[in-house]
Design a protein around this nucleic acid. Structure first.
Length: 815
RNA sequence: GCCGGGGUGAUGGAACUGGCAGACAUGAUGGCCUCAAAAGCCAUUGCGCGAGAGCGCGUGCGGGUUCGAAUCCCGCCCCCGGCACCA
């Protein structure tokens, strides 16, 4: 008998599957099968595949194959997110063209995907760096521009000094660049933004309907959007008459305001300092803050700040209060100015103590008396309003709504909602991205490049090394053009679009990847989308996934699609780590998957990674596959499966009854597990079945039915060996991957004999085999007849007998 | 601080709605095969006591509900992830 040899099986089937067009999604409108869109997050072409890819795509492929076997017309595409800093930096480091480097990596990854046996529809392959693709990225940008959703403004932005480009807020992780980890600094620059804040409320509201998404992703998005409810209240500067709005979540504490604070960057600060005669005092603070990186700024001292020498008038009681400028107030949030309520806000409290400002309690805890003199911290819990004019005696925070109504009546303020979410900064001062299709005309201003002139192609002969400005700006022939409206000499915008713009719509493009009249064919998109199952890393929870939801809503508003959410279900695979730490070059702990695939086979590595633990949990490779030179456990198991199925195929005997029952139980269990991404549990059930097959064969029995079922169940997870056994050993004509998923017989799946557990006072004392339909009386009698039970009862009085046929009897005695 | 998710043998992890804790693996130990090794096969493997049948203990800690709790409730501790002078 031949031994299991993946190196012989796997390349053979990879070729044949492609020759047989096994994984093409059908666009036939008469195809009766339900459509299923199985989407994997596409990859950055930064070298060959790593362990993270192996895990994500093994899971995604299992989903797609399982869906196909269950009778769906499956769309399972693949492509590359091939623009971006990653590719560009790597290319610069190696002194090669980003394009060359990128496409070489794409070819390598594509070869690896084939080697792994991924069931992709290769006819839909796309690369975001292809002009055929980014033409439509630019086209979509222009539609956003037309609708006022893409705009340019001067603003303080995050700048990565190493990558020499601006970053979106979402790309700043703990104050550092998402790509390279360099601490980000602040710069005032004119940049392009997408008006995602217009969609903040809808992004929040619709998240509630995403029941197929992991809770943590939705939570992260909610935190990121950061909705706060409260009131906006207008204060007047006594000396100048300037009106300044502030946002507060606690309008009930308005009577406790004893000072007023501006953010350092607030536009009024300079003139107010002038007026207050405090310019010499204020200027050093401004200088200091401007020079401080954002990361350090966040730890700014709450006691820091200087008076501006002017006063604000509290609209609720007409009091004049001193005005300050302090770094603890942020220009980015709210209005860049706050009212200071030291008695009820900890930061204000600390500031007031440092500057010897009065503290006035306006919410008293019930039955207590807070004395401003002796308070050591702000009181921010519930209580009764005092010193609050018309609201004395009203309970807070229940009073907030009433205060807001009152403010509106009095014309002093109104209900307001503030979001933490900022507009999405989409321009980048780098080469390797889609040029922004805008012409700057001295007469007409920002002018869209006409659609028929798209794409604005990236010129190949650019010195693309970063220099703080866009490399395209150094390319004279690119820069100089004429205005599309009046023909005047004009210049092209030289920034490129963030990669996350490319990836915000690629899953639409897969539906009609070769359309040259539109980014996608609306009718085809209607048939496939929304995506039925999306699989990818949680690191995109507030980047790609939020942006994609935003794009879909904009496309809906444009009438291009009829749905508002792009993905119905989302599953995040965990990370593959090593000895508790993420794999990285600097730690030297990277395990490359492809050499292991060459050595032990694609099926083995796919199974090994899916069997290692729950799909969404991190996997410590050190713990599951410690010795790279030792044969992995799953490889041995596949060898046993191969042997068992081969042996069973040569035998005429029918499967004995107990094995048949196990087969049907296994089908039921594995089906359930596959639906819930519980690949590790599914595999363990198959192992139980194969162990039983071995025992049956050794006892001279047949295992043909078991073999058929096992091979079908294994197909989504280990596609090569399943195909080999299905066609070559079991003698089927058609591919296992187009065969129907096995059905189970409910009757057979029921246990023939079940173990009746007999407890005495909750402790297991005996186990008795009974028929599954054993009744309550039978179970009670059997249990009480047990000698072990009698011994445990030890003559005590039996108080109660709880019977749960056919699984359990609990005899309760008088103790 | 706020929000989300966790804590089960030496290890990865099972245990559908409360009902046999530790499935399935990995590792380890012993044995078979072999000149030897690898591969393979068999046995044992939660902890403690016991020659054994068996008994006791055991799912982060402390309480509670229940005939019965890894699972439900209350109070803690710890770990992971996200957000954070957010007004």
């Amino acid at each position: 008998m031949r031994a299991y040899d993946p190196s012989e099986i796997e390349p053979k089937w990879a070729d044949r599957w492609e020759a047989e067009d096994l994984y093409l999604a059908s666009e036939d409108p008469d195809d009766p099968r339900p459509r299923f869109y199985a989407l994997d997050m596409f990859s950055y072409p930064s070298g060959d595949l790593h362990m993270g890819h192996l895990e994500a795509y093994s899971g995604g492929d299992a989903v797609a194959r399982f869906a196909a076997m269950r009778g769906n017309n499956v769309l399972h595409p693949i492509g590359w997110d091939s623009f971006g800093l990653n590719a560009e930096n790597a290319a610069i480091k190696r002194g090669v063209d980003p394009k060359e480097w990128t496409y070489a990596n794409i070819d390598q990854q594509a070869a690896s995907y084939r080697r792994l046996g991924m069931s992709f529809d290769w006819t839909r392959r796309l690369h975001t760096s292809d002009p055929e693709y980014y033409r439509w990225t630019q086209w979509l940008f222009l539609r956003f521009f037309e609708r006022g959703l893409a705009y340019r403004k001067n603003a303080p932005v995050n700048w990565c000094p190493k990558d020499q480009t601006v970053l979106a807020n979402e790309q700043v992780i703990n104050g550092a660049c998402e790509r390279c980890g360099t601490p980000v600094v602040r710069r005032d620059l004119t940049q392009w933004f997408f008006r995602i804040t217009d969609y903040a409320q809808r992004l929040l509201d619709d998240a509630a309907a995403l029941v197929g998404w992991p809770e943590r992703v939705l939570t992260m998005q909610r935190n990121w959007i950061g909705r706060s409810e409260g009131a906006s209240v207008t204060f007047e500067i006594a000396e100048t008459g300037d009106e300044v709005e502030v946002f507060t979540t606690r309008p009930d504490t308005l009577w406790g305001v004893t000072f007023f604070v501006f953010a350092v960057e607030h536009p009024l600060v300079a003139t107010l300092a002038e007026r207050g005669g405090t310019r010499d005092l204020v200027e050093p603070v401004l200088e200091k803050v401007r020079a401080t990186p954002l990361t350090v700024r966040e730890e700014a001292d709450t006691t820091e700040g200087v008076p501006l020498g002017v006063h604000a008038v509290n609209p609720v009681n007409g009091e004049r209060i001193p005005v300050f400028v302090a770094p603890y107030v942020l220009m980015e949030y709210g209005t860049g100015a706050v009212m200071g309520v030291p008695a009820h806000d900890q930061r204000d409290f600390e500031f007031a103590r440092a500057h010897r400002l009065p503290i006035r309690v306006v919410v008293q805890p019930e039955g207590e008396e807070r004395d401003p003199e002796t308070m050591t911290e702000a009181y921010d819990h519930e209580g009764v309003m005092v010193n609050s004019g018309p609201f004395d005696g009203v309970r807070s925070p229940a009073s907030i709504g009433k205060v807001v109504d009152w403010l509106e009546e009095q014309g002093k303020g109104k209900a307001a909602v503030t979001f933490r979410l900022r507009d999405w900064l989409i321009s980048r001062q780098r080469y390797w991205g889609p040029p922004i299709p805008i012409v700057h005309c001295p007469v007409h201003g920002e002018v869209a490049v006409p659609d028929d002139q798209l794409p604005v192609e990236l010129p190949p002969d650019v010195d693309f090394r970063p220099g703080g400005e866009s490399p395209l700006a150094r390319h004279e022939a690119f820069v100089h053009t004429t205005c599309p409206i009046g023909g005047e000499p004009a210049t092209r915008d030289t920034d490129t679009l963030d990669t996350f713009v490319d990836s915000s719509w690629y899953y639409f493009r897969y539906c009609s990847p070769h359309d040259d009249a539109a980014p996608f064919d609306g009718d085809v998109v209607e048939r496939w989308m929304p995506v039925d199952q999306y699989v990818g890393g949680v690191e995109h929870a507030i980047l790609h996934l939020l942006y994609s939801r935003f794009f879909t809503k904009v496309l809906f508003d444009m009438g291009m699609v009829t749905f508002t959410e792009p993905m119905l279900r989302l599953m995040n695979q965990g990370q593959v780590i090593y000895e508790g730490a993420s794999m990285s070059k600097t730690k030297g702990n990277i395990v490359e998957p492809m050499p292991l695939v060459e050595r032990w086979g694609a099926d083995s590595m796919r199974l090994a990674i899916l069997f290692a633990g729950p799909f969404e949990d991190d996997i410590d490779w050190k713990a599951v596959a410690p010795d790279p030179d030792r044969r992995p456990g799953v490889t041995s198991w596949l060898g046993r499966v191969y042997a068992a199925v081969t042996e069973a195929a040569e035998r005429d005997a029918r499967d004995p009854e107990p094995l048949r029952r196990l087969v049907h139980r296994t089908i039921r269990g594995v089906t359930n597990d596959m639906e819930r991404f519980r690949f590790n549990v599914a595999i363990s059930k198959m192992q139980v079945l194969s162990n039983e097959m071995r025992a049956t064969l050794d006892a001279g029995g047949g295992a043909r039915e078991a073999s058929t079922a096992l091979v079908l169940l294994l197909a989504p997870l280990a596609p090569f060996i399943a195909e080999e056994l299905w066609r070559e050993v079991l003698g089927n004509e058609a591919s296992v991957h187009t065969s129907p998923w096995p059905a189970f017989d409910e009757e057979l799946a029921r246990e023939e004999r079940v173990t009746l557990v007999v407890q005495v006072d909750g402790k297991v004392r005996d186990r008795i085999e009974v028929a599954p339909d054993a009744g309550e009386e039978d179970c009670r009698e059997l249990a009480l007849a047990s000698e072990k039970v009698a011994r445990s009862i030890d003559g005590r009085e039996v108080r109660q007998v709880i019977v749960r046929p056919p699984r359990l009897v609990n005899v309760v005695t008088a103790r």
